Computed example of a mutant assay.
Amino acid sequence: MRISRRSLKLKALMSATAVATALSVAALASPTASAETGTTGASSYVRSAAEHHRLSAAAKAFDGGIPQAPASLTACNNIKSSAQIPLLVSTNESYAFVVTPGAAMVLQDLRLPNAADYGDLALPTWVVFNGSTSWEDDTMLALYCNGDLAVRAQSGALIWHSNTAGKGGKKVTISNSGNIVMTNAAGAVVWQSGSRAEALTANHILPSNQFLQFWAYGVGEGTQQTRLSMYTNGDLAFSVNGKVVWHSKTKVPGSHAALTTRGQLMVISPAGKLQWSSKNGGGSLNTAFDTSSGTIFVADDDGTPIWQVPGTNLGEVG
């Protein structure tokens, strides 16, 4: 298989077995629904606080277990979930594109400096899956010679594809912002996933005109997209499948959002004046906002949730 390779130091990444253990394919297909948002199907992929813990434990168990990882996948080649290194890694080592039994996903590495065993968490930002696929399935991520990127079960059954056959795609990489990018022989972009960061860690900001996003597609389950958006008009909003389900009602153009070391989500004007706050506490530098569930959680044994976007119920938080 012709794949360029590079050194891997990302502690949060794990083998296909570990990802499968942390993210139950059976759980993906469970019909968790939200009365507030009306979401079903792929919404069941949203992770609970306990799953954050399992991801962290799996990442720790496989820390240092993968000496090298591919940087790109070229046409006429594939990566299987049974491979020793079933993933692509961004050059900044913050994102990986991983294939697991029945699924493929982009993982974001959250680096929390004082969280000890939970200092590196790997959170999915973009996922395609088939909940009926066997745990032992040798699922394949392939960039076919015709330029189509596809995820297929061992039987050959299609889970997802980019629908880019005949468009000249020659190479797939995962960018430093978490975007899956397909380019042609000249280096021009043929297709991209649009995936990006889904989580914001304490002491970091979400600038004006930027957003966090989680996206999932399940065979027979449909698609779910959740976003936390900082609009240019100064309003911070949370949306599910394009519908705003909550917003801060702030109106100072150019404002940014920030997650404090107390675990509070805030909107701050360009002049530095507080416009809105979640008003909770109990956080630390080990706190993050998870867009898939709309919660602020602490990286500890329980993945303790300390705030949730009002009016949402995207999954268990306790």
Rank of each mutant, 00 (worst) to 15 (best):
R2F: 03
R2D: 13
K9C: 07
K11C: 04
A12N: 01
M14N: 07
A20F: 01
T21L: 06
V25I: 12
T37A: 08
A42N: 06
A42Q: 06
S43Q: 13
V46W: 10
V46M: 12
A50Q: 13
H53F: 07
H53V: 15
F62H: 11
D63L: 05
G65H: 12
I66D: 08
I66P: 02
P67T: 11
A71H: 03
A71F: 01
S72I: 01
L73A: 08
K80P: 00
Q84R: 14
S90R: 07
S94E: 05
A96M: 05
F97I: 05
V106K: 06
V106T: 12
D109R: 14
D117A: 12
A122Q: 01
W126C: 06
V128M: 10
F129A: 08
S134G: 04
S134C: 01
D138Y: 05
L141C: 13
G147P: 12
G147V: 12
A150K: 15
V151Y: 07
A153H: 13
Q154Y: 10
W160H: 10
S162G: 12
N163C: 09
T164R: 14
A165T: 07
N176I: 10
G178F: 06
N179S: 00
T183Y: 00
T183I: 13
A186H: 08
A188Y: 07
A197S: 11
A199Q: 08
A202L: 08
A202D: 03
A202T: 02
P207K: 05
S208V: 02
Q213F: 00
G218D: 09
G222M: 09
Q224H: 11
Q225R: 15
N233M: 10
F238Y: 15
F238V: 02
S239Y: 05
G242V: 05
H247C: 04
G254Y: 05
S255G: 09
S255Q: 08
A257D: 05
L265A: 00
S269M: 03
K273Y: 01
W276P: 06
G282M: 01
T295Q: 09
T295N: 09
A299Y: 02
P305H: 06
E316D: 06
